[in-house]
């Protein structure tokens, strides 16, 4: 599942069209869903981005799911400004360092895959930064690019996901010289990057694909049934799963049939503990 966070509707519309995303009935944000993708429009600013990112992940991730769900990652995509004209307008840049101008904090995504983008750093500001602010020395820039969301997005996403699951792609939209904000131009900038972003998303999904559990679905079902019928505590349940995995890794064989244990009629937890000990002997010493 890929989650996308954009600040503006004009940044989201190219994705909504390309991936045939449908508007969700969410009361709080424009939220779109499609096959393997959810997109939220946060509004402008790092606080707004953090809130929307948190909402999106907290609503959709169940505990433990971040590690287990296939190809799970989140991407903040949007236009940004650049002081230096190193990159032409419309250039997508994959961010390797996010700096928060106000707090001074820095965040680092893990870039573990080949990608087609230029790389750079982005500095997130609370307010719009104009070229004259930099030229006059009122604002001192430390990063290649300037935006208003990335640090809030990253900080929020980091509460849920690993750094290789969080990406920021900024498309150079101006050189801090915008007079009239042109939504169509922004949408075009994003549209022009879609092919590259699509390839990138596939790479990210591949990287983030969960490693297969050594236990099969049937075996997990059998163990869950054992946990329940033996009235195991949460800790004992973890121990049972751990023993089962170790058995399979050590012997290379499927789990032995545990049905005789599952059918045991346990009335008090102490009985369950005794049966668990018998299972332990079977799984660790066979």
């Amino acid at each position: 599942m890929i989650y996308i966070v954009t600040a503006l509707p004009c940044e989201s519309s190219p994705f909504v069209e390309k991936y045939h995303l449908k508007r969700d009935g969410c009361r709080y944000f424009p939220l779109y869903r499609g096959d393997g993708m959810s997109l939220i429009v946060s509004g402008v600013g790092k606080m707004a981005s953090a809130i929307a990112t948190t909402y999106l992940l907290a609503q959709n991730l169940k505990p433990g799911q971040a590690e287990e769900e296939e190809g799970l990652a989140i991407i903040n995509i949007g236009v940004c400004g650049a002081f230096h004209q190193r990159h032409p307008i419309g250039t997508p840049v994959l961010i390797h360092k996010v700096m928060d101008h106000e707090t001074g904090k820095q965040y680092f995504p893990d870039i573990l895959i080949e990608h087609p983008f230029k790389e750079g750093s982005v500095e997130t500001h609370n307010n719009v930064v104009r070229r004259e602010d930099v030229l006059s020395g009122r604002v001192e820039l430390q990063a290649d690019l300037v935006d208003m969301e990335a640090s809030g997005f990253f900080q929020a996403a980091s509460r849920f996901l690993a750094p290789h699951q969080i990406y920021v792609i900024k498309v150079v939209g101006d050189y801090l010289d915008v007079v009239d904000f042109d939504r169509q131009r922004v949408a075009q900038c994003i549209s022009d990057t879609l092919d590259a972003v699509e390839g990138f998303i596939k790479q990210v999904e591949g990287l983030c694909r969960a490693e297969g559990d050594v236990l099969t679905q049937d075996e997990r079902r059998q163990l869950e049934a054992a946990k329940e019928s033996l009235r195991l505590t949460v800790t004992q349940g973890h121990q049972l799963m751990d023993m089962a995995r170790r058995y399979k890794l050590r012997t290379g064989r499927p789990l032995p049939d545990l049905s005789e244990f599952i059918q045991t009629d346990v009335k008090v937890k102490a009985e369950g503990k005794k049966v668990l000990e018998r299972i332990r002997r079977l799984l660790l010493y066979e």
Binding site: Q106, D110, L112, S158, A162, P163, L207, E211
Partner: peptide, 21 residues
Amino acid sequence: RVMIRHYKDVFNRPRQDFRRQ
């Protein structure tokens, strides 16, 4: 090359994936 303030800002990030890294 990415300039950083302190190595722990990168090395000690939460929830890193040792195997994938």
